[in-house]
Design a protein around this nucleic acid. Structure first.
Lengths: 323, 323
DNA sequence: CTGAAAGCGCTTACAG
DNA sequence: CTGAAAGCGCTTACAG
């Protein structure tokens, strides 16, 4: 019923193996034959059968995207956005994207194992980094190609990663506030672990020191006092708008009384006023590059694992002002 | 290298065809033989080769999830959440989820066509409804199994759909406000088309009429006056928090001066105060049911197309109060 | 209840 | 530059 390589071969008056080679643009096949085959394919409306191709070639032509085992994925626009970007780039490479998601490490691991063992995918993109977990250990142990979006803390040397330079971003946030004349700045976070927090905070505190400013760390999990600070570097957009509301309840207005700068440039940054001055982390690029790196790894499994750093961009909006 | 059905057969002392049947729990195979095969599989660590299975059986064991061709998918938690739910249910059914996304109807259509023609998927779940578009027309024309999340306006009779009852939700929103003593209520929207808007608004206006209340439609795209209204039914959470901020700038406080009720119960509903009274639309259930319906359709292609209505639930929070 | 055989639609050494 | 053949790992009528 469906058009096969045999039908095309018959129509073009060649052997099926020649059709297969023509399709893959094999250098040994003459241009003339390639044209004949092209023509026959077009006339018959040929589509390859991916299952047959996978079986014969041993390649799945698909990659798995692994979401973090957390409940609140849907609250973070990051995931949908990078998934879209990954799919876009995958399509350019004629690769299909399958997904693995779950709320525990166990379900995630078993999905990843099944996907790989059943040869449904050739490799993986992990959308979370940090400490090693079961999934990463499995991939590493079995030598399965994968790339991580984010920065692994362990065995970073053996892992291809794509990330922003969070330390530099923390530093530039501070620098920008300093350029507006702020001298007393606080870093605000709702967590005290995680690579993203560590790096952004490190960039902040290093820069504070370098410029001779006054800096401190404020945790939103406890009651906190702004004190003398005239500017805040907040871990991400969503936290920033919560902080701004809390300040507003205390009669402190942003940016009139205090400036706020944050990270990610998500929907939350331009949801309500004051729109946030924030760093765009270029999620589309993160997605594209991670696919490219994985494709490379698939072709050259023994090549070096390297880290790709994607540039960010400051978006100045309403939440910051000069003192 | 990888363990195949042949290896298992040899170990179990049976024919490969028997192994295949045992794996699929074929009724003709004796329990004793099934056990032998189970044991051999476990000992050898057998995993099926999905490509071979797909080729031999003609089934992909995978479904495609199609995202709407819009830019702002990542801003709506709905998509990530339903994707997670779909994947969860698919896993229960040993089905893989692949995705199709793009910013134009053309790229979306070509992805869907390729996925189906290359036999990578058996059917699709469309995450958008409303007017017929190229993708849906293609699926309908070629008799490809699919289910829609949402309510199609055309040819609804030929399409399996999973949705909430938006009209009823609009009605119950109004009813709830009326029960709090509100008599002048406005419906607030930033669009004037789309099934979701139409249905929710229809439910609102029908109920307003039935209860003898005063109702009106306010468009946020223009300057609007609350007028005499003491309560607002807002199209969705994200719009609601924007409206609340606008009111606040005019010195109107929610819920002290005016009540607000909205829909979706997304992250935006409990992001900042006042937390929103809103309807939870049960996205997890929408996702699960859509997979179940598709699986059914795959097994019984000639069965009726039907609509599944998933219940919703009112979440009372801070944005509404009695007059 | 089980086996032997053909076939699914490709790819790829091997020949020439 | 191209063909003939074997093989990838399953499934499934057909026999018995």
């Amino acid at each position: 019923m469906a058009v096969t390589i045999k039908d095309v071969a018959k129509r073009a008056g060649v052997n099926p193996s020649t059709v297969s080679r023509a399709i893959h643009d094999h250098p040994a096949i003459s241009d003339k034959t390639k044209e004949k085959v092209q023509k026959a394919m077009a006339e018959l409306g040929y589509s390859r059968n991916s299952a047959a191709q996978m079986l014969a070639s041993g390649k799945a032509g698909a990659i798995g995207v692994v979401f973090p085992p957390v409940e609140n994925k849907s609250e973070q626009p990051f995931f949908m956005k990078i998934l879209t970007a990954i799919n876009e780039e995958a399509r350019q490479n004629e690769i299909t994207v399958s997904i693995a998601s779950g709320y525990s490490n166990d379900t995630l691991l078993s999905q990843v194992q099944v996907m790989y063992q059943e040869k449904r995918v050739d490799g993986f993109i992990l959308l979370y980094a940090g400490e090693a977990d079961d999934v990463r250990n499995y991939l590493l142990a079995d030598g399965i190609p994968f790339v991580v979006v984010g920065t692994p803390v362990e065995r970073a040397n053996e892992i291809t990663a794509v990330d922003n330079d969070n330390k530099l971003m923390g530093s530039e946030a501070t620098q920008y506030l300093a350029s507006l004349g702020h001298k007393r700045i606080a870093f605000v976070s709702n967590v005290d672990s995680g690579e993203v927090f560590h790096e952004r905070y490190l960039g902040f505190s290093t820069k504070v020191q370098a410029l001779g400013l006054t800096g401190q760390l404020l945790r939103t999990t406890e009651e906190f006092e702004i004190g003398e600070a005239t500017a805040l570097v907040v871990l991400d957009d969503i936290l920033a708008i919560k902080v701004i509301q809390r300040l507003s309840e205390q009669g402190i207005a942003v940016p009139q009384d205090i400036s706020v700068i944050s990270f990610n440039n998500s929907i939350f940054a331009s949801l309500i006023h004051p729109y946030l001055t924030t760093f765009d982390i270029n999620i589309t690029q993160l997605g594209h590059r991670s696919v490219q790196k994985l494709v490379h790894l698939l072709a050259y499994p023994e090549d070096y694992r390297e880290k790709v750093t994607v540039p960010f961009e400051l978006k100045v909006r309403e939440s910051t002002k000069a003192v």
